[in-house]
Design a protein around this nucleic acid. Structure first.
Lengths: 173, 173, 173, 173
DNA sequence: AATGAATGAGGGTTCATTCAT
DNA sequence: AATGAATGAACCCTCATTCAT
C-alpha cells in the first residue's frame, strides 16, 4: 500500500467515525489526506469501496485480538480478559469502534458486529461456570459493554477505568 | 398544528430516525408526507428547525414520563419502575429513541440525553439504599440500558422482556 | 410548458443535433438556454430524459406530416409528395433530422427511424404501379433520400433543389 | 509498429467506430487493447493523435483501392466497379466506414470524405457516356451509396447484395 | 396555507493527461 | 517500451433553500 493510499484510509477512518459516512464528502477526505480527490477513486473504486476496505481492516484487527483471549483456560480469566480487552480496545482505538457503531446504523446488518462475538465467548464461559441463566448473564454484560462503547465515543464517561474495576470486582473476576 | 404540518413532523421523525438526519433529504420528507417540499420551509424555517421541533417533542414526552416515576417513594420501586418505563418506552416508541441515538452522534452534545436523567434518578435511589458504590452501580445499570436501547433499534435483541425480568430479579427489584 | 422548460428543449435540440448527445454537457445546454443547470434535472429528470422528450417530439411531428401524404390517391402523386415532403422537412428542420441521425448511432435501434415509414409508403405505391421489383425500387429511393439527409446536415450538398427535380423527372413523378 | 501499438490502434478503430470518438474513453481503449492507459499517450501523444493515425490509415487504404478502379477504360465498367468496390468495402471493413461516418459528424469537414472521391469518378464517366445531366446522375448514385453505407453500419439492410444487383441492372452496368 | 418554478453550492465520479520509475 | 501513481477539470446530478403566485 503506497503512502497516499494509506493517507486516504486514515483520513477516511477519522472522518467517517467522527462525522459519519454520509456526512463525509470525498472532497473532505482528500483534503484531510492531502491528496487529490480523484485518487480516492483510483484506489478504492468509489466511496463505498473505501468504506468496505475500512470495515475489512476493523474486522481483521478485532478477530486477531479476540483469538488471544480464547487461548486462556480458566473461565473467569477468559471473561475478565474479554472485558478488559474490549475496554482497552475501545480506549486505544476509538475510531474503529466509532466507525463500527456508525456503520451499524448506516449499513443495517451488513456489518460484522463485534459484540456478537463477545457474546458467544461470554456465553460459553458462563456455561462452564454453571451459573443459573448463562444466556442472560452473558447478554447483560454484553449490553453493558455496548453501552460503555457508546459513551466512550463521546468522551462523556468519567472514571471509566474505575467503573470497569467495579464490575470486575462485582463479578469476582 | 395543521394536518399537513403534522404529516411533515411524522415523516421527519420516521425518516430521521431510520436513515439519519444527514441522509434524509427534504425532498424525501415531502414525498413521504405527501406535501410540497416548500411547505417544510414555510412551517419550520429550515431543515434544522424541523429537527429542533422534533427534539423538543422528544424531550417533553420523556420528561413527563419520568415525572410519574419519581412520585414513588420506595427506592427499589423507583429503580424498578425506571427500568421498566425506559424499556417499555424503547419498545413502544422506537422512533423517538432511534432519533435520540442518531442525534447523539450527529449533534454531539447539543442534545438532551435521556440516559443522563435516568442516571440521576438511579444514583439518588442507590444512595438511599446505602449500597457500597452508588455511582458505579447506577452507571452500570444505565450503560446496560443504553446498550439495550442500542440493540432494540435494530431488532437484534431476542427475549428482551425476559432479559429485563432477569435483571429485575438479579437486583431484587 | 413554461418559458424556460421550452428554452431548455430548444437548446438541447440545437446542441445535441450539432455536437452529438455525448459531447453536449448539461452545463452547456443550461448556458445556451440561459437557465440554471439544475433546472434541466427538475424538468426532465436526467440528461437521457431530456433526450427522450426530444425524440418524442420528433416522432410526433414526423408522423403528422406523413399522415397528410397518404391521404392522396394517385400512386405517383404519393411517391412524389413523399419525396418532396421529406426533402422540405430536411431543409426546414435540419436539427430534427440531425438529431435523428445522431441518435441512430448513439441509441442503436431504440429509435423510431423515419426512413422505415417512408419505405413502407413507397413500397405500397410501387406495388400499385406494378413495377417489376417494388421492394428494390422503394429501397433504392429511400437510400437516396437517406444519403441526401446525410449530406444536408453538413450543408455539403449544392443544388439540392435541382437534384430533387432531376429525380422527380427521372421517375416521371 | 510494435505489437502493443497495433493492439491500441485496433482497439481504437473498433471502439471509435461503434461508440463514437467522444464516447470512447482512453481507459476503455487501454482495457480493450490489454495495455496500460499511459501507453496510448506514449505512442500517439494524445487521444486526437490516435484518431488522426486511424484516419490516415483509412484514407490510404481507400485511395489505393480506388486506384485499381480507374485503371479500367470502359466507362460503364468503371461505374460498375466503383459501385461494387465501395459496396464490398462497406461489407468487409465496416469499422473503417463506420469510423468515417462517425467522424464526419464529429470533425465536421476536417476529414477526407470518401464519397467525394467516388463522386468525382462517377461524374467523369457519366460525362464520357454523354448522359443528359451527368452531375445529377452521379450525385444521385453517390447519395444512394451513402445511404446504403448508413444502413450497412447498423445491419438494418436486408438483401443488400440483391439490391446492388438490381441497381446494376437498372443502370445496365 | 400551499405550491411549482427556479437556483447556487456541493455531491460522487470519470476524463484525458503527466510523471516517476 | 511500458506501467502504476497521481491530478485538475469537467461530468451528471442532488441538495437545501427562495420566490412568485
Amino acid at each position: 500500500m503506497t503512502h497516499r493510499k494509506e493517507a486516504i484510509s486514515l483520513a477516511a477512518l477519522k472522518l467517517f467515525s467522527t462525522e459519519g459516512f454520509a456526512s463525509t464528502s470525498t472532497k473532505k477526505i482528500a483534503e484531510y489526506a492531502g491528496v487529490s480527490e480523484a485518487l480516492i477513486f483510483r484506489h478504492y473504486g468509489n466511496k463505498k469501496g473505501l468504506l468496505n476496505s475500512l470495515v475489512h481492516k476493523i474486522e481483521e484487527r478485532f478477530i486477531s485480538s479476540i483469538s488471544l483471549i480464547v487461548a486462556e483456560k480458566d473461565p473467569k480469566k477468559v471473561i475478565g480478559k474479554t472485558l478488559t480487552e474490549a475496554f482497552e480496545s475501545m480506549q486505544k482505538e476509538p475510531e474503529y469502534w466509532n466507525l463500527n457503531y456508525q456503520l451499524k446504523k448506516e449499513l443495517k446488518g451488513d456489518l460484522f458486529w463485534k459484540m456478537d462475538l463477545i457474546f458467544t465467548i461470554l456465553l460459553k464461559e458462563f456455561k462452564n461456570l454453571y451459573v443459573d441463566e448463562p444466556e442472560y448473564e452473558a447478554r447483560f454484560l454484553v449490553l453493558f459493554l455496548e453501552g460503555m462503547g457508546n459513551e466512550l465515543q463521546n468522551n462523556t464517561l468519567k472514571n471509566s477505568t474505575e467503573l470497569l474495576s467495579f464490575v470486575m470486582k462485582k463479578y469476582d473476576l
